[in-house]
Each structure stands twice: as structure tokens, then as C-alpha cells.
Design a protein around this nucleic acid. Structure first.
Lengths: 253, 253
DNA sequence: ACCTGAACACCGTTCAAGT
DNA sequence: ACCTGAACACCGTTCAAGT
């Protein structure tokens, strides 16, 4: 029959009865505390040992409910994806609802420290990931996009957003890593790297929300059948970076 | 002034003279053996301890030349990016040269085990990364794309390709993780997930090269000024998945 | 100034032994 | 059947001591 689906409920029951002192162990409790630790302490906080400690056990005890660190990570990711808003305003156009869903996804990733990195490292195939996939496929179908294009387009959307969030998440952890890149780009030799030098300000600009909105337009324009091209506003960037960089204080650093 | 650029040459000289038995330590030698280890043994092979062992020292010795594991990773990434082909056929169109560069980048990432994941976790700002950035900005400029769009477009290209490679790389490591996703998608309930069910084959299809080529067309169409739209072939997917899935053996697993 | 061994504070995972 | 402490084989990083 093949391997057990890790998202199925386990056939195990805790023996910690009389939950006076210790609440009974369960896969659900493990995932909950793991996500809690991730939120509070970032990716280093979500070790098996620390999750176990928070649950007042040894790490070995977790292996009854979870086969692996990887599996725990997959479960935590899917649990977190549960708060992605897949509904949107029901009267809105499919494109608006897609935009809502994708920025909700971005917000969820941005909301807890190591989640974006986790999403890149883990292949999400839990019920909540499926719910997102199903919704996006439905919206693209509504938009008249054929299945094959929609399937690849889904990946394009999600990978890009996840990568944006991961890149953004990296910058916060080591204090000044973003500053480092900015310094390099700003200090680049105009002779050797003329185009980079000329586009300094544009390269350093843009909060992730804006960039995702822009990318969504680009991708939709690339994906939509020609008959609908006129519906997408054509040149979404148009000076956006200049204001964006100002907001970020990029010129002052 | 600020912090030292980690890509600058160090002001340190090795004291292991008389390289009869041990060759002198150097930042360059460290990066070289680290990349070698990454290629041979994958990401777990590139620990500071293992790099040190390969160089016949203790891990502590490396800290003279490298401030951090993160810095070593950044250096290794940039070293690896040195073999990306940024030149292409000189007589080819800018779009062809861009395609060549991007698939060379993909090939480099696919060529060594943990590199794509490393590229997602590290912000690449070494000379080779700059060389790639400079070239792409130049090509997009040649294509009449304004600087702001080019800057964000660069990110869109590179992040997507890196993410594709990382996703692809994940599948190989734990043996059958791709198989797991495939199983889930194939076993999905047609009632709860009608669109996923209908698009099963399309979702599971596609070797990364094809998908990158397709994505490049989508992105260019999204980015180019309307006057050039006609130059990009309009519907690049067109049955690709069906043949792709067969090649991958996706239906048999 | 480089180089080093030992120590510190962690990991994930396994296993024999408990209930 | 669950649960556990101890052990195993690793990590990155620091530090005092060597040359």
C-alpha cells in the first residue's frame, strides 16, 4: 500500500493520562508548540529538543508522533498555511481575489520568522497547501487560462512570492546583511559595471508588497490570452522605485 | 568606511611555509576545498569541521581567513557562479543571449547538490554575481526595457530560476519526496479539490529546463513594451506537460 | 601574526530499559 | 503501547596556549 500519508491522523494515543501536571502528548500538540516556538524564537527555536523541552519531555518522545524533523517542518508549514485567506471578497473579480490570496500568503510568510525558508525547503502537500492550490487553479480557470498554463503559472506565482519573502526574511536575521548588499551595489565601479551603476537606485528599491503586486501584473500579462491583455494595466512600475526607496530610507544608509 | 567587504582579499598570510607536507592555508584554498566538498558530498559535506579536516587542520584555524560559516557560504556561492556563461553567442539577439545566460545559471545550480538552497539562503553580492547582474541589466537595456522594470525583472528571473532549482534539488535528497507529492496530488478527492483533480497531469509535469524556458517567455511578455509583444511566441505551453510527464515516468510511480 | 587542541553549548537520532 | 534517560555522532564558535 505504500507509505503512510504524514498528514493522516496517527493511530497512536498518549499515555500521559491524568493531565494534571503534563497535558497528554499528541501530534497536534507537538505541531502547535513547534509553530509557537517558531513564531517566538525563529528557526533556531524550533529544534526537536526545544519543542520536547517545551512539552516537558525528552526529544526521543516525539518520535512516536513524528517520524522526522522534516516531517515536523512539513506539518508546521501546513498548519501555518491554514491562516492564508483563500476566500477574498466574493463579489470581486477573479483577479482581485487572486491578488488577495497571494498577498495573504505573503503576509503569512512574513508574519513568522523562518517560515518562508521553511516553505522553500519543504514541499508543501498538506490539506492547507492543497486548499490554496485548489483555489488558485479555480481562479485561473475562471480567468480563462487553460489548465497547463495554470499549473505552471501556479508554481511561478508561489515560488516567486516565497522567494521574495525568504530573501526579505534573510535580511532581518543577521542584522545588517541587507546593508551589505546595498553597500556593494552603491560602491560598484561605474566602468566595470556601468548598467548596475546606472540602476543603483532602482535595484535597491521596493518593499515586498509592491514588488509582489507588480510581479502579479507582469505574470498575468504573460499568462493571459491576448484577448484579455488590455485588461491588465500595461506599465506598472513607472517611478515606483523612486518613492519606494525613499520610504525605505535606502538613500540615507 | 564601514565593515570590510568579505570579497576583498585578506591581509593575512599563512605561516605554513615549506608546503611539503601541508600546503599553506589561504582563503582561496578554503573556498576551493569547500566547493569541492559541496560538489562531492552535498550540503552536509560542507561543514567548517569537514573543510578543516580536508585541509588537515582544526576548524578553529579557518576563522583567520573566514569570519563565519555564512561568509564561507557566500564565498562558495560566488565562486560557483564564476562558471555561469554570461557571454553567449555574440551574434545572437539579446533575447537569445539572455536565454543562454539563464539556462547556464540553472545548469550551474543543478550541477552541484546544495547550491540552489545556498543561493536562496545567501544574498549573492560577490564579483561573479555582479557580473551576472551587469550582463542581464545590459541585455534588458538592449531590449528597450527601462531601468526600473529591468531591476525588478532581474529579481523575478533569478529568484524563480533559483527556486525551481532548489525545489528540484530537494526531491533528490530524501529519496522519494517528489513521489510523496505526486502521490498526494494523484490521490486527491475530486469532490473537495475538483480543479486539482482535473489538472493532475499538468501539475506533475515538466523538467526544469522546459519550465524555465516557458517562464522566460511569460516574464518577457509581461515585461516588454507592447510594441514588442508580437516578437514573443504567444502560447508556449501547448501540450508540453503531456510529453514531459511521460519522460519523467510520472504516470508509473 | 598565525595555528592549534580542547572545551562549550548545542544539534538529530537511536536504543535499551522502564511502565 | 507509549515514554524516557543516556549515549552516539555530529555541529559552529571561542579561548587559552603554543610557535
Amino acid at each position: 500500500m505504500g507509505t503512510r500519508n504524514p498528514f493522516d491522523p496517527p493511530e497512536v494515543r498518549s499515555r500521559r493520562r491524568g493531565g494534571r501536571v503534563k497535558p497528554p502528548l499528541s501530534r497536534d500538540a507537538i505541531v502547535t508548540t513547534a509553530l509557537e516556538l517558531l513564531r517566538r524564537e525563529g528557526p533556531e527555536g524550533m529544534s526537536l529538543r526545544k519543542v520536547a523541552a517545551a512539552l516537558e519531555t525528552g526529544a526521543a518522545s516525539l518520535y512516536v508522533y513524528v517520524s522526522d524533523l522534516r516531517e515536523l517542518q512539513a506539518l508546521v508549514l501546513d498548519r501555518a498555511l491554514g491562516s492564508v485567506d483563500v476566500r477574498g471578497a466574493p463579489k470581486a473579480s477573479w483577479r482581485m481575489r487572486l491578488k488577495t490570496l497571494l498577498s495573504s500568503y505573503l503576509k503569512v510568510l512574513d508574519g513568522t520568522p523562518g517560515l518562508a525558508q521553511l516553505a522553500l525547503a519543504t514541499v508543501a502537500a498538506g490539506p492547507n497547501a492543497l486548499r490554496i492550490l485548489e483555489t488558485v487553479m479555480g481562479l485561473l480557470d475562471e480567468g480563462g487560462i487553460d489548465r497547463a498554463t495554470a499549473a505552471w503559472g501556479y508554481d511561478l506565482f508561489m515560488l516567486y512570492i516565497t522567494a521574495i519573502a525568504a530573501e526579505h526574511g534573510n535580511q532581518l536575521n543577521p542584522g545588517d546583511d541587507a546593508g551589505h548588499v546595498a553597500r556593494v551595489i552603491r560602491g560598484v565601479s561605474p566602468k566595470r559595471y556601468p548598467h548596475v551603476h546606472a540602476a543603483q537606485r532602482e535595484l535597491l528599491s521596493g518593499p515586498s508588497e509592491r514588488r509582489v503586486a507588480w510581479a502579479l501584473d507582469v505574470l498575468l500579462r504573460g499568462i493571459l490570452p491576448p484577448s484579455e491583455w488590455s485588461e491588465v494595466k500595461p506599465r506598472p512600475v513607472r517611478n515606483a522605485p523612486a518613492s519606494a526607496i525613499a520610504r525605505r530610507g535606502g538613500l540615507k544608509v
